[in-house]
Design a protein around this nucleic acid. Sequence first.
DNA 1: CTAGAATCTAGAGCCGACTCTAGGTCAAAC
DNA 2: GTTTGACCTAGAGTCGGCTCTAGATTCTAG
Lengths: 131, 131
Amino acid sequence: MSGLSIGQVAERTGLSVHTLRFYEREGLLAQPVRRGTAGHRVYNEGDVDWLGVCIRLRASGMPLTDIRRYTELVRAGQGNEEKRLEVLREHRERVLAQMHELNECLKLITHKVAIYEGRLGLRDNVTDCAP
Amino acid sequence: MSGLSIGQVAERTGLSVHTLRFYEREGLLAQPVRRGTAGHRVYNEGDVDWLGVCIRLRASGMPLTDIRRYTELVRAGQGNEEKRLEVLREHRERVLAQMHELNECLKLITHKVAIYEGRLGLRDNVTDCAP
DNA sequence: CTAGAATCTAGAGCCGACTCTAGGTCAAAC
DNA sequence: GTTTGACCTAGAGTCGGCTCTAGATTCTAG
């Protein structure tokens, strides 16, 4: 069941084939992709899983350079767990900070929505209300 | 009370003077900034407050074009509350989606951190590439 | 009065993250 | 046996969001 074309991987991951090649150039793949006949990329399930991790990290705001750094550590094999932890913990801080920021924004939006809904409601209820 | 230079506003908001001028060009200010002698910008507290809102919206991922759209509605005055609500609700959805995504990422990170901490604690040599 | 800091405008430059193009190879379907 | 479509590489282009430069003017402290 391992032996996916770039098109199949694109479909599965939601990335475009362009982006898949781009990510590979950027060193985001844990292992170098195997090549089949005519040099076509052949992905396996592990590649897809790893791409899933990359996608999640990207979606949470990790820059490509950091993902590459982490990928390189994984690729280098055992013995650098401390460094991997450092990268992960650093990103966790960013994620938490971002969550906090989003919460603040949510409060602001909720506040403003309440104001506008109140204003509209008032207008509906009191039909002859001149501003 | 009112009468802040661009430098003072930069200091208060954390934006650079470059960015303040850029935001103004992009139409992110609710009112056109007044000008003092020699054409220097003179901000008031209301401007700073509005910039605070813009900064929060930006930090939560709202693109500048959407902030401009919203600003234009506010600038246009009463009567478009429905449209403002639409912009706000739309962004709220994005924020909630983003929070969900961050949560998923947090789970992933926590999982991986646990693995690495366990590995360091137990000194085993499992090769891990699982998501 | 003068040096240095702050401001102005218009426009160029930069960076991250894609996204697309051109020109080519190859396999299978008609 | 040619056409179609997925794939290849190298490299150019795009876009959002700043960031900086140049050259001029103006405020401010000594």
